[in-house]
């Protein structure tokens, strides 16, 4: 569950990125956060990942109060979140298997569990036989599935995808979005997709929260520009 109560974020240079934002996302929901450049989407994503603290207001993510949380608890919060980045950010010197296993190793999982879970996750993502390939030997679609496998391998309850379709073609964008929708519908994980791509948002008819100049200007289910 994600809850923002009267959240305001002002940067040291005086920029008010978010103004008195209230938002509630239930477990298992699929939500698009949309808005033009500078609307406050990235700030919202950074707040949810606890890369930033709100200036005022409360943020609750999966049972963690992000305003009061001490630094040492941040890794615990992040283990409940799977992050999919723009450009996927796969590590080029690691194979497909290592890219996925690396996420488990970083949180101290057992070697036996890493082997079992990482291989099974690659199977779920239809990447069998690609374990020993390096990212640059994969197609765009395969790369995004590796990125998703890495985000899911530690079994987080929430997936946050920050502009995941930013630099890929429309076909790959739809493929990735279909995977995210499948994950949401089949295993009930909460999915928050931060994007500015109207076409995708309209196609999936999910809940859409629109930000403009740091404020939520609409929160409804359906397309971005549907009539009320």
């Amino acid at each position: 569950m994600i809850e923002l109560q009267n959240v305001t974020k002002t940067y040291p240079n005086g920029t008010k990125a978010l103004k008195n934002v209230n938002l509630h996302i239930d477990d298992g929901e699929f939500v698009f956060i949309v808005g033009a450049s500078g609307a406050g989407k990235t700030t919202l994503s950074r707040l949810l990942l606890r890369e930033e603290k709100p200036t005022s207001g409360q943020i609750l993510v999966n049972g963690f109060n992000l305003k009061r949380m001490p630094e040492w608890r941040v890794p615990k919060l992040r283990r409940t979140l799977g992050v999919v980045f723009q450009n996927f950010r796969l590590l080029p010197h690691m194979t497909v298997y290592e890219n996925v296993a690396f996420a488990m190793r970083a949180v101290g999982k057992k070697k036996k569990d890493i082997e079992k879970t990482a291989k099974s996750m690659l199977g779920v993502m239809h990447l069998d036989g690609k374990e020993n390939n390096f990212p640059d030997e994969l197609s765009g679609g395969e790369q995004q599935r590796v990125a998703l496998a890495r985000a899911l391998v530690n079994n987080p309850s929430t997936i946050i995808a920050d502009e995941p379709t930013g630099n890929i073609d429309p076909r790959l964008s739809r493929e990735l979005m279909k995977l995210l929708v499948d994950i949401n519908e089949s295993v009930g994980k909460t999915v928050v997709v931060i994007t500015h791509e109207q076409e995708l948002v309209d196609y999936y008819r999910k809940r859409v929260v629109t930000l403009k100049d740091g404020e939520i200007v609409s929160d409804r289910t359906g397309g971005m520009f549907d009539e009320d």
């Binding site: 990942l49 040492w72 890794p75 992040r78 690396f102 970083a106 949180v107």
Partner: peptide, 12 residues
């Protein structure tokens, strides 16, 4: 690598 480690929840 360090950035990804932080995102997946590795301790400092």
């Amino acid at each position: 690598e360090i950035a990804i480690m932080h995102y997946v929840g590795a301790t400092r």
